[in-house]
């Protein structure tokens, strides 16, 4: 019983972080039609910035805020410097065919990942370093019993829930959120009704950058920080986004929690080595049984 409860809590905290990653992926996919494989590279970079600030004597919260801002700027930079020039050329030469238009941005994002990882390696050395958590990492005690989760787990869940609430409010209650939804739905119509879709796209890259940097800050205390550590989180986040349908923000959050539980179960009841095998089987089953994901709409191809 205790093992089951521990698994449940482990799955929920990890799942909360995966939900953030998946949300970041979905935001860019909806906004720009690109799956950003460099996303966790950006998160790694901003987490390193936070780590350096803490090492040089600044407080945790200052570093935390700086990392989120850096994540937003980095996201916007990727869009303006790489993806915009790419989409501008998308109707000429090798990019003219539909399959290559889907393929080339993937390659470009892998290039960004390589650049960010090499830069991080050059700037901050290759050895792994730890990253502090803002609250104590001991198990919560209540009514004389030890709960199966720590203060930091609670902190993660609260931060993620606040972020989800803020994102929901942003998309439903603000003009900019409405503009983003319109652009995701139909860029052409959105442009005709006066929305500057270029800016809206850059904004979705920036918000995605914040979400993934937040995920980086929340996951690194339980793992070590190195240029490659967050790659595996991206894969899990991608699977979560596909489970949720890649189109739907609530779907990505649900997908994140499902993946968190799946991985916790494999970790606790089987062996950690099998996590990616389980991930592959799960992904294939979802893609074969329900290719549109749990929340996705049916895909229609226009001729």
């Amino acid at each position: 019983m205790d093992t089951a409860l521990t698994t449940l809590f482990l799955g929920t905290t990890r799942g909360a972080v995966f939900a953030l990653v998946a949300m970041g992926l979905v935001l860019v996919w909806r906004g720009a039609g690109i799956v950003n494989f460099a996303q966790m590279g950006q998160a790694m970079f901003s987490t390193y910035i936070a780590s350096s600030l803490i090492i040089s004597g600044h407080g945790y919260w200052f570093a935390f805020a700086t990392a989120l801002i850096a994540g937003a700027l980095l996201g916007a930079l990727v869009d303006v410097a790489v993806m915009r020039p790419l989409t501008k050329r998308s109707h000429s030469g090798i990019l003219a065919s539909e399959s290559m238009r889907a393929t080339v941005p993937v390659i470009a994002s892998l290039g960004i990942l390589g650049i960010l990882q090499s830069l991080a390696g050059m700037l901050w050395a290759a050895e792994e370093r730890g990253f502090p958590s803002p609250v104590s990492d001991v198990a919560v005690k209540a009514f004389g019993k030890t709960a199966p989760f720590t203060n930091f787990d609670l902190f993660i869940i609260i931060v993620v829930l606040l972020t989800l609430a803020a994102t929901t409010l942003f998309f439903t209650k603000t003009g900019m959120g409405l503009a983003m939804r319109a652009t995701a739905l139909n860029p052409e119509v959105a442009r005709l009704s006066g929305i500057r879709i270029g800016r809206v796209r850059t904004l979705s890259w920036a918000i995605s950058g914040v979400a993934s940097s937040l995920a980086g800050l929340l996951i690194t205390p339980s793992a070590n920080l190195s240029p490659n550590t967050l790659d595996l989180i991206l894969i899990v986040g991608f699977t979560a986004a596909v489970v949720g349908g890649l189109e739907s923000l609530p779907g990505s959050v649900v997908g994140g929690f499902i993946l968190g539980l799946l991985i916790a179960v494999v970790n606790v009841y089987d062996a950690p080595d099998d996590v990616f095998l389980a991930l592959l089987i799960f992904l294939l089953v979802v893609l074969i049984v329900k290719p549109g994901g749990l929340f996705g709409s049916k895909r229609v191809r226009n001729v």
Binding site: W29, I34, V35, F37, S99, A102, T103, V106, L232, I235, F238, T239, V242, L246, D273, D274, V275, F276, L277, L279, L280, L283, L284, L287, I288, P291
Partner: peptide, 20 residues
């Protein structure tokens, strides 16, 4: 059955799962 980014992601997971 898969296109573009879906295929890229799935094959990436495959490459990671093989060592296990």
């Amino acid at each position: 059955r898969l296109t573009g980014p879906y295929l890229a992601g799935t094959t990436l997971v495959l490459a990671l799962a093989l060592p296990s």
